[in-house]
Design a protein around this nucleic acid. Structure first.
Lengths: 225, 225
DNA sequence: TGCCACACGTGAGAC
DNA sequence: TGTCTCACGTGTGGC
C-alpha cells in the first residue's frame, strides 16, 4: 500500500509536469519538478515566459469543438422552457421530453383542426356531447361545387366538403378571380360543412366564371390531405 | 529548434509513461521508459500482470457519465426527424431547429384554432382575401342567447358570440341538460358566429329551460379568454 | 499528409 | 467527507 501510494504520487508528479507544461500552469505548480519544462523552454529560445512551448496537433481545434458543443447545449437550454437542473445531461433529457411533448401537441392540434370545420364539435365536446347528436353515420363524402348566377355580376357559390384546408384554398381562388364575398353562411354537421357564398365579380364574362367553377371543383374534389 | 524538439520529446515520453500507466498500454509501449511503472506495479504487490494498477478516483463514474450523455444524444437523435450529419454538434443544432419549428407550428395551430369559428377565414386567407370581404368593421360585440320554444320538447337555441371555447361550453351545457341536438346551423363573418341549434329536451319543465337559458347566458357573456 | 470528430482519464470545483 | 459535473489535452480512426 505505501509503495503503491509512492508509485501513484510519482505518476501524479509526472502527470502534473506534463499537464502544467501544456496548460502553462507551470508558475503555480512551481517547485522542483518544474525544472524540466523550464529547461526545455529556455532551450526553445522563444522569448515568452514559460508559455506556448508545445501544442498538441489539434489542441485549438478540440478547444473550438468543445466551445461549439457547449454553445449548442446552451442554445438548447435556451429554447427548452422547463429546465430541471443546470447540467448537460438533464438539459438533454428535458430537451427530449420537450420535443416529444411538442410533437404530441402538434398532432393533437392538427387532429382538432382536421376535425373541423365548424368548431370541432365532436372532438372538443366530450363523448356524451357527441352522443347527444342525432346519429347520422356513414354519410358518403363527395365534394360538391355549385355556382348559381343571381343577377348582374352576382352569384351564389355553394360548396360541400369536409376538410379545413379546402376553405382557405377556395377563398384564395375567389381572391385570384377578384370575387368579392358579400356574405357567407356555413352549415356544419359531423365535420362536414356546406357553405354558401354570396359573391360579386365585377365585369367578368361567363367563360371566366366557368373557369372559376372548374378551379373550385378541382380544389374541393382533391383528396383530403 | 532541435533543443525544443528534444524538450518536447522528453515531455512526450513522460506523457506516455503517465498515460500508459493508466491505460495499461504499457506492454505495447514497452522498452526503456516502461520501467518506471512496472517498477511501481511490482512494488504494489497485486498479482495482476501489469493491469488495473491505478484507478483515478472517479474513472468509472466518469465513464458512466459519458455513457449517459451519449445515450441522451442518441435519444435526441432518435426523436428529431431531420438529421443532417451524424455528429454530436449537428445533432444538437438539428434538435434546436426542430424545437423552434415545433414551437412555431404549435403557435400557428393554436392561432388557427382560436380564430375559429367558421374555419379561420380571415387569418388563414391572405390579407387580400380578408380585403375581398365587404367591409363591416367595428361591429359591437355582445354575446346573445335566445331560447325559442318550437313545439313539445323542441326549441330553437340561437347563440351569437365570437370565441371558439364558448361553443364547447355550450355543447357541454346542453349535454348536462340532456338536450339532443338534432341540427345545427352556423353563420360566420369576421370571426363572429351566429349559431342556431334545434334541440329536443324530453320531459323537461319550463323552469328547467329557464335555468338552462340562464346558464347559457353566463357562458356566452363571459369575457373572451 | 492534414483535418475532424470522438472517447478517454484526469484534476478542479461545487455541494 | 465523498460524489458529481465539467473542462482539459491527448490518442486514434475515418476521410
Amino acid at each position: 500500500m505505501p509503495r503503491r501510494q509512492r508509485a501513484r504520487s510519482s505518476e501524479e508528479l509526472k502527470a502534473e509536469d506534463f499537464v502544467d507544461s501544456v496548460l502553462n500552469f507551470g508558475g503555480a505548480g512551481g517547485g522542483g519538478e518544474g525544472e524540466d519544462e523550464e529547461e526545455g523552454e529556455a532551450g526553445g529560445g522563444d522569448g515568452q515566459p514559460a508559455a506556448t512551448e508545445y501544442k498538441s496537433k489539434n489542441l485549438e481545434a478540440e478547444r473550438r469543438r468543445r466551445g461549439r458543443l457547449n454553445s449548442n447545449i446552451l442554445a438548447l437550454r435556451a429554447v427548452v422552457p422547463n429546465i430541471t437542473k443546470m447540467s448537460k445531461e438533464s438539459t438533454l433529457s428535458d430537451a427530449i421530453d420537450h420535443i416529444k411533448k411538442l410533437q404530441n401537441q402538434v398532432l393533437e392540434l392538427q387532429q382538432q383542426l382536421a376535425d373541423s370545420p365548424g368548431e370541432a364539435w365532436e372532438k372538443q365536446g366530450s363523448v356524451s356531447c357527441s352522443e347527444s347528436f342525432a346519429a347520422t353515420e356513414n354519410m358518403p363524402y363527395q365534394g360538391q361545387v355549385e355556382l348559381v348566377p343571381l343577377g348582374p355580376y352576382k352569384y351564389h357559390l355553394k360548396i360541400f366538403c369536409k376538410k379545413a384546408g379546402i376553405f382557405t384554398k377556395v377563398l384564395e381562388a375567389l381572391c385570384s378571380y377578384n370575387a368579392q364575398v358579400t356574405s357567407l353562411s356555413t352549415i356544419t354537421f359531423y365535420g362536414y360543412a356546406e357553405s354558401v357564398f354570396c359573391i360579386e365579380v365585377k365585369g367578368e364574362q361567363d367563360v371566366v366564371m366557368v373557369e372559376l367553377r372548374s378551379l373550385l371543383s378541382s380544389i374541393v374534389e382533391v383528396p383530403n390531405n
